[in-house]
């Protein structure tokens, strides 16, 4: 299977990032993580392990939470990618971001962008999540600072904030 003579050719990959279409010239196996950070200067997506264990590089691809360190660039051709930079809209923080500030969900901050996106994913699936749903939904995002308690509080705080906002919207 191995082929020391292989030489990759650069190719153009077009996809949308936070709603804006981008085309990058890249080697096909370049990690999406590196394309975001290096080619598009979106450094909010972090590298914690490079092996899909820690979740610091979490982004959404076509609406699914994924580890961007495990995705070769050519696989996002035509896809929709959403990163932490696209979460706050018009200068206003997302409810999950506000909750992380309020409830102490961020300490050193390296896991935070991925953790915030994982929390967004939990709340999309479970607007009124149980403790177990939160724990399972965040289990792919390692944090070494908080011991997770304040992160759980943050998710629950955000759920309440979203519910109360949606309630107001419906009224």
């Amino acid at each position: 299977m191995s082929d020391a003579e292989a030489r990759a050719e650069r190719l153009a990959v077009t996809f949308t990032v936070n709603g804006v279409e981008k085309t990058v010239e890249t080697l096909p196996m370049k990690r999406l993580l590196d394309v975001l950070r290096e080619d598009l200067a979106l450094t909010g997506t972090k590298e914690g392990c490079g092996e899909g264990e820690c979740g610091a590089c979490s982004v959404f691809v076509d609406g699914r939470l994924v580890n961007s360190c495990l995705i070769p660039a050519l696989q996002v051709e035509g896809s929709r990618v959403d990163t932490i930079e696209g979460l706050a809209r018009g200068g206003e923080l997302h409810a999950v971001q506000r909750a992380f500030l309020e409830a102490g969900g961020a300490q050193c901050g390296i896991c935070t962008p991925g953790m915030v996106l994982a929390a967004v994913d939990v709340l999309r699936k479970h607007p009124n999540p149980t403790d177990e749903q939160v724990r399972e939904g965040l289990a792919g995002n390692l944090c070494r600072c908080t011991g997770y308690m304040k992160i759980f509080d943050s998710v629950m705080t955000a759920a309440l904030a979203i519910a109360s906002r949606d309630g107001e919207g419906a009224a």
Partner: peptide
């Protein structure tokens, strides 16, 4: 499926 990796792995 539920116990393979975690959510982000399960999407890929």
């Amino acid at each position: 499926a539920r116990e393979s990796g975690a959510i982000a792995i399960q999407g890929r």
